[in-house]
């Protein structure tokens, strides 16, 4: 925090790059899913066109202040998450506001966006939004459990709350990556990751069939665009966080792209194969095997790794 004006400048750069990458990634994923489904799919730049279109639209409805703030909170959550996650290990430019307890902040911001969204969407008064929020918060709470357990496991393992230090600890060879040193924690976290990315089988929150759209039902025009931007930033930030915590982080952009893409593909590979769980089923699911694995991971860390 010595040179905060340039820090902020670097962060803006990071935000832009991650945002663009997130958008591109959604295009890539769309094409990948299209391939499975036997289609050619959209052009890669389609998400950008959609964003531009939504930004260019006006609104004519009013649902109250919280409704407007919803997407802002959501975007703030995304940007906040990214702000405390070092994009590239050992890079000043791509280091962001990394500090001693940044892992906690990142986790906080991940939660914060959802809550803000919930408040805003709830304000719209649409029953689909309300049902979607109930499902979304329920499911989030459920997948946070294994995720938190996994984080606890690695915090215990590396004895730090700083992401940069966790990444540092994994340097020096593939064998040092958390995924190999503490596989149980990573499995629990990756299952939670499936819940976070909202691909099947955990996409009931915004399921098009089981209630159309869910929380964002009433959102349109630039609100929708803001949420799309958040999705891109948030997805990028989340992927970078997972990469940093479990897959040894990245020291250059190429490595970053490859690793984050691979992590994302886990969700896509699973998503294409499965239908979706009902929300009660997914809660039950998260609180069963992944939670047990998470607990086992902590036990394993305590019992095997630390001594």
């Amino acid at each position: 925090m010595q040179n905060w004006p340039s820090q902020i400048g670097y962060f803006m750069l990071n935000l832009t790059i991650v945002g663009l990458y997130g958008m591109l990634l959604s295009g890539i994923v769309a094409r990948t899913l299209a391939k499975v489904q036997g289609r050619i799919g959209i052009p890669l730049y389609q998400p950008f066109l959609d964003l531009a279109k939504n930004l260019g639209k006006r609104t004519a409805v009013s649902h109250g202040v919280m409704f407007y703030l919803g997407p802002v909170f959501r975007l703030a959550g995304g940007i906040g998450t990214l702000a405390f996650v070092p994009v590239l290990y050992g890079s000043e430019i791509f280091g962001n506001f990394s500090m001693a307890g940044d892992l906690l902040l990142a986790m906080y911001f991940m939660f914060f966006g959802q809550l803000g969204m919930a408040l805003g969407a709830g304000e719209s008064g649409h029953p689909f939004s309300a049902i979607g929020i109930a499902r979304g918060l329920g499911q989030m709470t459920a997948y946070e459990v294994p995720f938190a357990l996994a984080i606890i496991a690695i915090v215990v393992q590396y004895d730090t709350l700083s992401i940069t230090e966790i990444v540092a600890a994994q340097q020096g060879g593939i064998g040092n990556w958390t995924v190999f040193t503490n596989p149980l924690a990573v499995i629990a976290a990756m299952i939670a990751f499936l819940g976070m990315t909202a691909y099947p089988p955990f996409d009931v929150v915004m399921a098009p069939n089981e209630i159309p759209i869910g929380p964002p039902t009433e959102y349109h025009s630039s609100y929708l665009a803001m949420m799309t931007m958040n999705q891109a930033v948030f997805a990028g930030a989340k992927l970078i966080l997972f990469m940093a915590l479990f897959f040894g982080g990245a020291t250059n952009l190429v490595e970053l792209v490859i690793k984050t893409w691979a992590i994302y593909m886990v969700a896509v590979v699973v998503g294409a194969a499965f239908p979706r769980f009902r929300v009660d089923q997914s809660i039950r699911f998260f609180l069963r095997y992944p939670t047990l694995i998470g607990i086992a991971a902590i036990a394993y860390t305590q019992a095997v790794l630390l001594p």
Partner: peptide
């Protein structure tokens, strides 16, 4: 039936 339960891949195949 696939799509109604979230399996839209099967939907694309069968509709094709």
């Amino acid at each position: 039936i696939g799509a109604a339960f979230g399996q839209s891949t099967v939907y694309q195949w069968t509709v094709t």
